[in-house]
Amino acid sequence: MNIFRLSGDLCHLVAIIILFLKIWKSKSCAGISGKSQVLFAVVFTTRYLDLFTSFISIYNTVMKVVYLASAYATVSLIYLRFRSTFDSESDSFRVEFLLVPVAGLSFLENYAFTPLELFMITKTGEAASITTHYLFFLGLYRALYLGNWLWRYHVEEFFDQIAVVSGVVQTIFYCDFFYLYFTRVIRGSGKMSLP
C-alpha cells in the first residue's frame, strides 16, 4: 500500500459519496447517467467476485463491499426511488458503443470504463457543478492510480499490464474533462457548459 493508492481509493470513495448525496439531497438524478452507474455496478460485481475466492486484507475486503453496496444503492436511487426525475432521453449513449470496444479489449484487458456523464456533457452541453465535482474525484482517483503503479514499479518492482493499460485508457478519457473543469468550474461560472 502507498500514498497514491490510498488517496486514490479515498478519492473514489469521495466521488461515490458526492454522487449519492447529490441524488439523495436534491431528490433528483437529473444530469446523471443511469446507464453508467449500472455499468459501474456490473464492473464491481464481475471484478470483485474474488471476495469469495481469495482474502487479501481487511482493507481490501471492506472497500470492495463498500463500493459494491454504494454502486447498487446509487442504481436503486436512480431507477427506483427517484425514477421520475431520471431523464433517460439525455442518457442516450449506446451501451453497445462502449461494450463492443471493451469486449474487444477484454482479450487484452480486464475492463475500461468512463462515467458517461462525460458523454452527456458533450451531448447536453453542460453539467451541474456537483456532477463535475463527482467526475473530478473519479478522474483524480484514476490519475492517482497511475502514481501508484509508478511507485510499485520502482519500489516493489511490481507491474501488472492488464491493470495499467486499462487504467491509462480510462485516465485518458478524463483529460478533456480536467481541462474543462479547471478552466470553467474552478475559475469560471461554477457550472460547466461547453463553448
Binding site: H12, M63, E157, I162
Partner: peptide
C-alpha cells in the same frame, strides 16, 4: 504480463 507481487488493487 504481470510480475513482482500480488495485484491487490481495488
Amino acid at each position: 504480463c504481470s510480475f513482482g507481487g500480488q495485484k491487490d488493487e481495488l
